[in-house]
Write a protein that binds this DNA or RNA. Structure first.
Length: 741
DNA sequence: GCAAGCCCAGATAGT
DNA sequence: CTGGGCTTGC
């Protein structure tokens, strides 16, 4: 069975699978089949060596990778579902939920996202009377995060801090940690740090997990930071069966604490480690792979490795210099339509990759105009929308009444006449009596300073108390409905802003859908489980391969994925490499940008498109950029420049254009998804609507309605529909998928 | 306590 | 251009 399957592997892959005992580093180049090796390795352990699936741990960075690996393991071995495959963060949450009481938290802890953390930092800055200009919450957070990634406690940090600023940040860090603890909450970095702390302080607990995890596998090892490294080291130190897979050339998370030394020094860290290199690429054409190799060659301090492929040469990389960001977007959409209309590709075969999220907007707008279905990842995360954060804050408070950040978020949302001064008074009372904010609320009547306002505060307390009691009996989705119902959340905000309310209602509905979905997928569904999933699931985890839509994402998000046709947009100095990386002047920083470029190029299987614009709108101004230095690192032989009208690729140094000059620059011809579609847009040709004015139609979110008006807009039609539930709305026929009844 | 309005600063990347 | 913070006038 499994031995037959091993025959499909190449010699190096097979060697990696068969070497099951002791430390092993698999240096897996892009597209060399590392997931295949990992999954076969797991299957081999189970089916050939009779290892209990329960004794295997596989760690990944994203839920998507975990999900995919689990699925593929299940395909090749029956007991695959018993293997513990999950991300570092979820693994740690699982461990902490069981044993965190040893560190003085309760297992009802909540998880803070970056937003929550920043709010807490801001509060602390206020109490310390520090200027937010000197200590911007973001930079403070970044500094604290850096310490946490390196397992440095506030006290140790204070000792090493050698200037005023760092000393102050150490002080903030200390208070931050104590506040987190008082709130019974952990931030992202804590999830790893606290698990390491738990293991370090409790030999018996560590022993329990060491016993269990006889075989450990780590994906994307080049992205591990010091705390993750320590975690792996601790867990594997008993059985020493540790298999890490990674590619130093794809290390692109240095800014998140990833320590490239982890992979470069693996053989020193783990005695008797074997190193296996997977150098045959099965993904890309020769042209693409060679171009990638030529770029990455410019980095120093790499593990020696040379990727090759037996694939065909393939077409040259189409490289295009456009006049503006709008032209670039047009170029991309035209190329996509060309291929799709000639039936050589589907929308789902394309990805558009860019260095930062801001670049997606122009492209997105153009895709809408061209009626190209797409899916945008990253950007404004669904869970970071106001209304979603509000509702989730209710759930968090219900689950963990010590979560002051969540309480303060919702205590006056919807408006209940509770302002800052009341909150301050409750705060003072809580501190004086050393009780939590929520406990203080329960005693609101005793706080004389509140006078008549105490009623409002107490009724908020009762509201939460009622909901908490309810939460014991009902499901998460029912609880969500109860929250909406008891707070009048929707009707309250319906009054304040009439403009974008339907979008917000949609979002809330979507949240309820997600809760229902969660309940269906998990037998042991619980409030904590739902909150966890939401905190730890990234946007990209929902990438669905069979959606048949063009995918738009950052270069970072694209790691681990592959597409037939890849566009790398915004290939400009100041964009990619980023302005900041140029400014830093640090070779290490620039090398990471180059690795990012390598990652991008190697996502493409058949054809790569590189584009850059002479000018683009940034911060409301037109900016001139020159072609990216990385473009010059790709030999001309690999580039197809024939489509460029003018050969003026290299423009003089970046020039900032002032407002006054702006009116002479290219003008936007269309702006945004909602309004003024300009005249030079093709009229609809390819779509025939099967409904007319007066017909009843159905739309997924809005339900049933009557068509009021139909007008051409770009290559689609804008349809005005009077919906029974949500009233009149304007939607695009194709995008909204209107169905005639 | 709250809404409106002004002003200023600000933009890598994401578990 | 956008969002957050702060001021102001109810």
């Amino acid at each position: 069975m499994i031995t037959e399957k091993l025959q499909t592997l190449n010699p190096m892959q097979k060697k990696a699978v068969l070497k099951t005992d002791g430390p092993i580093l698999i240096l897996a180049g892009a597209g060399s089949g590392k997931t295949r090796v990992l999954t076969h390795r797991i299957a081999y352990l189970i089916d050939a060596l009779n290892v209990n699936a329960f004794n295997i741990l596989a760690l990944t960075f994203t839920n998507k990778a975990a999900k995919e690996m689990k699925q593929r393991v299940c395909e090749i071995t029956q007991s695959g579902s018993d293997v513990w495959v999950s991300t570092f963060h979820s693994t740690c949450v699982r461990i902490l939920r069981r044993d965190i009481q040893n560190l003085g938290y309760t297992n009802q802890f909540t998880i803070y996202d970056a937003d929550d953390s920043e709010k807490l930092i801001k509060e602390i800055l206020k109490t310390l009377q520090l200027d937010e200009k000197m200590f911007s919450p973001k930079s403070v957070m970044a500094e604290i995060g850096k310490q946490k990634d390196n397992l440095i406690t506030p006290d140790v940090f204070l000792e090493t801090a050698d200037n005023f600023r760092l000393k102050k940040i150490a002080e903030i860090y200390k208070i931050y940690q104590s506040r987190l603890k008082a709130n019974n909450s952990l931030d992202f970095d804590d999830l790893i740090f606290k698990t390491v702390e738990l293991f370090s302080k409790n030999a018996d607990i560590l022993d329990k997990y060491q016993q269990r995890f006889k075989y450990i596998m780590v994906d994307e090892y080049q992205d591990t930071n010091t705390s993750q490294y320590k975690l792996i080291k601790l867990l594997s130190s008993k059985h020493k069966n540790i298999c890490v897979v990674g590619d130093d050339d794809q290390s692109i998370y240095g800014w998140r604490g990833a320590n490239i030394r982890n992979i470069l020094d693996f053989e020193k860290d783990f005695k008797n480690a074997e190193v296996i290199k997977l150098e045959q690429n099965y993904r890309s054409t020769k042209v693409i792979l060679n171009a990638a190799n030529m770029v990455i060659k410019n980095n120093f301090g790499r593990k020696s490795k040379s990727l090759w492929t037996e694939n065909i040469d393939g077409d040259k990389i189409i490289c295009r210099c456009l006049d503006s960001d709008l032209e670039e977007a047009k170029f991309i959409s035209e190329k996509i339509n060309e291929k799709v209309k000639s039936n050589t590709a589907n929308y789902g075969d394309f990805a558009v990759l860019y260095r930062n999220n801001a670049l997606s907007r122009v492209i997105e707008e153009r895709l809408v105009l061209s009626s190209i279905p797409y899916r945008l990842f990253g950007a404004q995360n669904f869970y970071s929308r106001k209304e979603i954060k509000d509702i989730l804050a209710y759930l968090k408070v219900i689950y963990n009444p010590h979560d002051d950040i969540a309480i303060k978020r919702i205590i006056n949302v919807p408006k209940r006449g509770i302002g800052d001064s009341s909150i301050e008074k409750v705060n003072a009372y809580a501190e004086k009596n050393s009780i939590s904010f929520m406990e203080a609320l329960s005693q609101a009547n005793e706080i004389s300073e509140l006078k008549s306002r105490s009623k409002k505060l107490f009724s908020f307390y009762s509201l939460i108390k009622d909901l908490s009691e309810l939460s014991e009996e009902i499901s998460v989705s029912q609880l969500l409905n109860a929250v909406l119902d008891k707070t009048n959340y929707i009707s309250e905000f319906a009054e304040e802003s009439k403009s974008d309310i339907s979008g917000r209602i949609d979002n809330i509905q979507e949240l309820i859908n997600k809760a229902v979905e969660y309940e269906q997928n998990n037998e042991d569904a619980s409030l904590s489980g739902f909150l966890e999933e939401i905190s730890l699931v990234a946007d990209i985890d929902n990438l669905n391969n069979d959606e048949n839509r063009v995918v738009l994402m950052t270069l970072h998000s694209s790691k681990g994925l592959e597409f037939d046709y890849v566009f790398m947009a915004g290939f400009e100095e100041g964009i990619f490499p980023s302005f900041r990386s140029i400014l830093e002047g640090e070779p290490n920083i620039m090398e990471e940008e180059r690795r990012l470029c390598y990652v991008g190029i190697t996502r493409a299987k058949k054809q790569l498109y590189i584009s850059y614009a002479k000018t683009r709108l940034q911060h409301g101004k037109y900016v001139y950029n020159t072609a990216s230095r990385f473009l010059k690192e790709i030999p001309k032989d690999y580039l197809d420049l024939s489509e460029n009208v003018s050969k003026t690729e290299n423009i003089s140094s970046p020039v900032k254009i002032t407002k006054a000059e702006n009116k002479f620059k290219p003008k936007k011809t269309y702006s945004g998804l909602k309004n003024n579609y300009a005249a030079n847009i093709p009229s609809p040709k390819n779509i025939v609507l099967d409904f007319n004015i007066g017909d009843k139609v159905r739309q997924m979110k809005y339900g049933i309605g009557t068509v009021k008006k139909i007008s051409p807009a770009g290559a689609d039609y804008e349809v005005t529909v009077e919906f029974e539930k949500v009233g009149e709305k304007k939607v695009m026929a194709m995008l909204a998928k209107l169905k005639k009844l």
